[in-house]
Design a protein around this nucleic acid. Sequence first.
DNA 1: CAGGCCGCTGTGGTCTGACCACTAGATTTC
DNA 2: GAAATCTAGTGGTCAGACCACAGCGGCCTG
Lengths: 209, 209
Amino acid sequence: MAGRTSSSKIYLDVVESLRSMIEADSLLPGDKIPSERELSDRFNVGRSSVREALRALELLGLIETRRGEGTFIRDFQEHKLVELLGTFFLQDKKVQEDLAETKRLIEIDCLRIVAFFATAEDIKRLMAWVKADMFHDDDFFLRIAILNRNRLLERIWRIVNSYARTSEMVQGNVKKEDYLALLTYLLERDEEKAIETYLIRIRNMSKGE
Amino acid sequence: MAGRTSSSKIYLDVVESLRSMIEADSLLPGDKIPSERELSDRFNVGRSSVREALRALELLGLIETRRGEGTFIRDFQEHKLVELLGTFFLQDKKVQEDLAETKRLIEIDCLRIVAFFATAEDIKRLMAWVKADMFHDDDFFLRIAILNRNRLLERIWRIVNSYARTSEMVQGNVKKEDYLALLTYLLERDEEKAIETYLIRIRNMSKGE
DNA sequence: CAGGCCGCTGTGGTCTGACCACTAGATTTC
DNA sequence: GAAATCTAGTGGTCAGACCACAGCGGCCTG
């Protein structure tokens, strides 16, 4: 009975109990938590209630379960929240425009950060890659998003991009020179020019072949 | 059996099925969804699996259940999930920084859009509101985020903001004059000045008292 | 001794059926 | 007509039963 926190739903109590337990035992990502049956025992609730709590936390990406092995604490970075919200409410028409715009904005933000903080080596490495390989426009910006060391922004970009890709956003042919020009400006820390180059590229793309 | 999406966990299939159902029947916030027993029947899965899916969605704030009445789609805004995650694994320093930075970036993006597209009436209405009421800094930017008519960006802001709020981001005292100055620049379509004002405000806030 | 096979045990995954608590609406009663 | 009552339907919870899978240890075989 311990500390029944007055919330009428058991599974919420379990969530709270788990939180306390994790805190008390200072469990870290990767650590294993007790089995469902033991939790059910320890908290004096049915196993199904424990499972409802665990499933909820799993969908949040806070834990990970492996059949036959157990349940483990997971690194919070990976949470699927945004993704889920996306799959749920992202169906409209107008949303397509918003997607494109948001993608653009985030990419520009990333460019700004990179122009400011990325090391010359990183940028040069990217230039070498541009020269060497064939690639998709997405790949290029994925690398930009990664260079920016803000993991959250990177993650948002990935999500927005994956949705944007399902729509038929024109994939015009952008030439390697354009990318190289952009990178050169980044190397020179010339934020304005870089963004300008980016915007020109956008225009070319939507004009399309 | 329909479209078992190969994910080994039934409850995830149910989540997906629910999503499809909501989309197909174009259910809106406030609408009622079928009872657990009927869903269990319709999807050919046990009721417990349905419940695991529902509990997860509930914790996300996507649905709301009322005992004796049923389960309803919810206008996901103030999901209490936020506090949860906050108390959970959000102590990570790096995550906090990323959150703050991302919030800043998005707010600036919103300012840019508003400076460009918002009508003078909208901005003036906001000025009147600033003058009239007491408000929280979040409220102000919520309104900015809404003015920008990009719903996706607004949604991202809401999420990022709600997470950021759980951390103890200093809530310095920003004066009404600052907000008014910012809005005035927006009214004049002076993007640069507006952002400059915004950044100064940020600095004051973190300097705090 | 080395290598592989086999079965035991523990874990998550799922289903079923049974109650309970509660709500709302129909029904009865005054 | 209004109040009290009953009833069907809904979520909340539990216990118990299987299944599928991973890991471990012991046994057999070469």
